[in-house]
Design a binder for these strands. Structure first.
Lengths: 154, 154
DNA sequence: TATTATTTTGTAATGATTATCAATTACAGA
DNA sequence: TCTGTAATTGATAATCATTACAAAATAATA
C-alpha cells in the first residue's frame, strides 16, 4: 500500500506535480477500494470521510491527472458516468470487463487476451497499438443459474 | 437502401412500433451516412434538412429505440457524446474501432477478431457472451508517417 | 521577505440527455 | 365514417455529470 503510494508520488514528482494532501487522500481511497469501479462522486464521498474539506472539483482534477499519468484507467460502461480503476502495478494495459446485462454485475479479467489480436491489427492496418478497451456483454454465471431454475429471463 | 429500410420497418412492426415519417427520416439519414459516427445532434441537423419540423427529443427517442432493437450500436469514444452506428445487416456483433490518439481519426474494423477469445471467456469464466465492445487506442498510419518525417510527436 | 507558480475551493456555467405534458396522429372497432 | 384509445411528437423545462472560473491558500524560488 505505502509502497504503491510511494511509486505514484515519484511519478507525480517526475512530472513536477506535487502530492498534496488532497491528492494523497484521493489515491488512498483508490488503493483501499481497488475492487470497485468508483465514479468521481463515489470517490468524493469516500475522501470526504477522511478529509472533509476537499472539494468535488479537486477530486475530478486529481482523477483526470492520474488518468493522464496512466495510474488509473477512466472507463465507461455506458451509464453516463465515468469510472476510475487503479491500474495494476507494472500492467501495460487496461483490464477487461464482463458486464452482465441481467443484473449489472461487472467482473474483471486480468488475463492478456489480445496479444495475438494486437499483432494482427498492427500488421494488417498499420496501426500502432498503445492500449485497448475490451468489454463483453452477456449473462453472468449467477444469472444463468437463476434462469435455469426459475425459467425466467428478463 | 430501400431494402434495408424495409427490413427495419418489419422489425419495428414485429414489436408493434410504427415507422412514422420522423422515424423513417431518421433511419434514412443513418443509411446515407453510414461511414460516419454521428452524434444525436449530428443526426438531428441532418434530419432537419429533409424534415424541418422534427424535434431533438424525437431523434433521441428514435435512436434509443433503434439501439434497443439492435439496429444501431450506441457507442462512446469517451468525449462525452454518444454516437450511433448502423449495424451491418446480418451482423451479430458490434464492429471494432481504431482510435488515433494523435489526430482523433476513427477507423472501423469489420473482421471477427474475437471468435476465439469469446470461446475462452465462455469456458473459463462461465460467462455467456452476447456482444462485445473492442476499441484500440494508438497511432494511425498517417500520423506515424508525419512523426517519422517531422520528428515530432505530440 | 517579495515574487511567482501551483493548487484548492465553492460556485456558476455548460452541455448532453431525459422527463413532462399538451397536442397530434394512427388505428381498431362500432 | 365516427369514436375512443394508445402511440407518438414537439417544445421546453429539468436533471445530472463535468468543466470553467475567480479568488484565496499554499508552496517554491530568488
Amino acid at each position: 500500500m505505502e509502497h504503491r503510494l510511494e511509486r505514484i508520488k515519484k511519478q507525480l514528482h517526475s512530472q513536477s506535480y506535487k502530492l498534496t494532501p488532497q491528492r494523497e487522500a484521493t489515491v488512498r481511497v483508490l488503493l483501499e477500494n481497488e475492487a470497485d469501479h468508483l465514479s468521481a462522486e463515489d470517490v468524493y464521498l469516500l475522501v470526504k470521510e477522511k478529509a472533509p474539506e476537499i472539494g468535488l472539483a479537486t477530486v475530478y482534477r486529481t482523477l483526470e491527472l492520474l488518468s493522464e499519468l496512466k495510474v488509473v484507467d477512466k472507463i465507461n460502461f455506458g451509464d453516463g458516468v465515468s469510472r476510475y480503476d487503479l491500474r495494476k502495478e507494472g500492467a501495460e494495459h487496461f483490464h477487461h470487463h464482463l458486464v452482465c446485462t441481467e443484473c449489472g454485475a461487472v467482473e474483471e479479467i486480468e488475463e492478456d487476451l489480445l496479444g495475438e489480436v494486437e499483432k494482427i491489427v498492427e500488421k494488417d492496418w498499420k496501426f500502432q497499438v498503445k492500449d485497448h478497451r475490451l468489454t463483453f456483454h452477456g449473462i453472468c454465471k449467477v444469472c444463468q443459474e437463476i434462469t435455469v431454475k426459475t425459467g425466467t429471463s428478463k
